[in-house]
Design a protein around this nucleic acid. Structure first.
Lengths: 246, 246
DNA sequence: GAAAGAATGTGTTTATTTTACACATTAAAT
DNA sequence: ATTTAATGTGTAAAATAAACACATTCTTTC
């Protein structure tokens, strides 16, 4: 089936010069980063979007993105771009996936690397610098510019998966939160309803919640207790792989 | 509580021309793909490596990689490169992660996208074309060229994780396999010992194995039954998300 | 200030899943 | 025929997950 026969003498191990010229010349491609920033507010999962950079596409929303500089580490570019576009600092970004079909961007060949983050909407003030920047309800995100809808969908799926395996959700909440806040968060991310008693039991049994001996204020009903997440304890317990679970 | 500040003056929405010139000129970067091909043979997990392309680094092993063409989809580049280097066709490649520190490659700035695959060593004949191409025991893979060790480690970790969530393992086995083969595979990938009875019970209860009413041959002991994997039945049952499981 | 409303806080029972564990059976090799 | 080495099987205990209801506390309303 394979057609790629080649005489067995040829072993074209390349010199560094050959590779360098290939790297320097015709084979270069524009590389960008897109940042998908999730937040949580009013019991809803949100995502930060801007009006498209491009005038032609300004009726559509798009992700926060820009080109990577040739002299810049990929991760560093993600942090720079996020900072430039939102003022956000001290936010952990995680690489999700890379999108590289030839015609994905109207400006030419641009391969983009998606980075994702979860932030607490209350604690991070946005500097809205150069574009209309808005928190969008994740449920209403449709028809983003270019292939950004696909990128967004991929990131949301990854979030849904990862939030079940790691206590990422706490990054979306204020430092002090009630169990109702926590449950709302999981229900919003996973888009499911959970049993309140079993949910509480589960989290208490994990033993990562510190009871602050404080109560909610500003609620128009019986206030709940406030907790914080015990990051230290969590770090110490590394979950081991073991089960097979299709 | 979303603070929708807006800097009402500056809104540098870019024209397509501006973006195009940025994409075309100084901001381009070489992009490559590296393929991490896992196989399974002699009850051991293997990975395909070649001697480094670069003369200077030819004492080290490296992953199968090459540059992406500007006119080529990223996924297509991965399949092309795999085919060129190994003759392998009809292999499913999955993107794992992208590596982009500035100095990761000696030939200059090259960002690389890692793709991973699992193949059945028996059923895929390699065409060894232009480099020393070898199956390496995964346990002995150390000190690969450039940052390839890091890339490899990332892929192996992802494999360990994914193999517990999806029945990927079957791609590594012959069409007909014994339960011992299957258990050896999981033990090799996860690098753990499993209880034989519980392992069998687990797989039988998943009900994805078709009993072929054949026995192993060429074993110097009591032969085991042979099975095949029921891909069709698997596809029909899409596993639902639900649990929270740190 | 009494009553109604709304969400908090709590336990038990059942079902399901996971783990631990031992012996008879089969075929090959000696 | 005996030994060897791996296959094939079941059960009990433990852990986890799921289903499910009522009294309590604070706010709001009348």
């Amino acid at each position: 089936m394979v057609k790629e026969q080649k005489a067995d003498q040829a072993k074209p191990t390349k010199s560094l010069q050959v590779i360098q010229s290939e790297v320097e010349n015709t084979n270069r491609i524009a590389l960008s980063v897109d940042c998908i920033i999730f937040g949580f507010d009013e019991a809803k999962l949100k995502v930060l979007l801007i009006r498209s950079d491009l005038k032609k596409y300004s009726s559509k929303w798009s992700l926060l993105g820009d080109l990577v500089f040739p002299s810049e580490d990929l991760d560093a570019a993600a942090y720079r771009i996020l900072k430039q576009r939102t003022g956000l600092n001290d936010v952990y970004l995680e690489q999700v996936s890379t999108f590289g079909t030839v015609n994905r961007h109207p400006a030419g060949r641009v391969v983009t690397v998606a980075y994702c983050s979860l932030i607490n909407v209350q604690h991070h003030k946005l500097n809205i610098l150069d574009n209309e920047l808005h928190w969008h309800d994740v449920k209403n995100v449709t028809e983003l510019a270019f292939d950004h809808q696909q990128i967004f969908d991929t990131c949301l799926q990854q979030l849904q998966k990862r939030v079940q395996e790691h206590p990422l959700g706490f990054n979306l909440l204020p430092k002090k939160f009630s169990l109702r806040d926590l449950q709302n968060l999981y229900e919003a991310i996973l888009d499911i309803k959970l049993d309140r008693r079993n949910f509480r039991k589960k989290f208490f049994s994990m033993d990562f919640l510190i009871d602050l001996d404080e109560m909610e204020t500003d609620v128009s009903h019986r206030p709940g207790k406030l907790y914080k997440f015990d990051y230290e304890k969590y770090e110490k317990r590394k979950k081991k792989f073991a089960g097979i679970d299709f």
